[in-house]
Nucleic acid binder design. Structure first.
Lengths: 141, 141
DNA sequence: CGCCGTTTCTTGACTCATTCAAGAATTGGC
DNA sequence: GCCAATTCTTGAATGAGTCAAGAAACGGCG
């Protein structure tokens, strides 16, 4: 994806096209599941003088617009990805915190259908699988 | 549940029985989904001079032993509950952060079966439903 | 093309849940 | 009861994230 595509995405969401936002979108695209600090570093390769606040603001704006997804497993800082709207889930390593994507094996899982529960109106189901990644499995025997 | 039951639980998990731990276990049992500050308050009704550190330590020990479960939806502080091992899930209100339990409608959902993915060995699936609680639905129209 | 109101960015201070550390007190096996 | 190991108290530190005020950039409009 080039910057033109990112600009398109922003305009399509009625967001102003600013250099920090384009850079953040690029950084998140190229660093799936990266935390804010990593994204900040990647953004500064494109735009050396952005403030961390601009990155936080951009991530919040992009999240609110549904262009990026914010994920935050227990015990982890916030992480972001651009793969949205395809109902995929995540596996998280208990040992090192690594995250990988998992496509939902079943097209639509019965358990995940939006419904009313306890008076709540549910609009999204988020699934996190907890386990151990290959590297940690090996190093721990 | 009385303190004797809590002590039993602790001994059963090979944990030392200390007054802070018994009080924390009682506080978590009576305050499902409470955050640490609420738990600290509830613990101090039983044991006025506990340090916050003792509560953190106890919660960590109880979590590690599987007696309490720590949950932490994005944007929320850590919360705890004693209902463990029955594969229930949570609905979280996007507006006010309220949490309620949801029993898995389907006995065992196909999508949630532990398996190997991306080299990960999965041992648990955690589901969080996001939506709006009844109160917030009303007050927001 | 240049102006203007609005949104966004910069700078810098601040919050607060959680963690760390050192020494004192408890626990439970003997 | 006594002792070693664990846990608790006290108090300071960490660090992701937020807040606030003023400067700059965006983009619609004439």
């Amino acid at each position: 994806m080039g910057n033109a595509d990112y600009e398109q995405l922003l305009r399509g969401a009625s967001l102003r096209v600013t250099r920090p936002r384009v850079a953040v979108l690029g950084a998140v695209t190229e660093n799936a599941h990266a935390d804010t600090e990593t994204i900040l570093g990647a953004v500064r390769e494109r735009l050396p003088d952005v403030s961390h606040q601009a990155v936080y603001d951009s991530l919040a704006a992009l999240s609110a617009a549904g262009i990026v997804r914010r994920i935050q497993p227990s015990g982890s800082v916030a992480r972001y990805e651009t793969r949205v709207g395809d109902n995929h889930h995540h596996v998280v390593c208990r040992s090192c915190g690594a995250i990988a994507d998992v496509d939902c094996a079943v097209g639509h899982a019965p358990c995940l259908t939006a419904s009313d529960d306890n008076g709540f109106t549910v609009d999204e189901a988020e699934v996190i699988y907890w386990g151990t990644c290959a590297d940690c499995s090996l190093s721990q025997g």
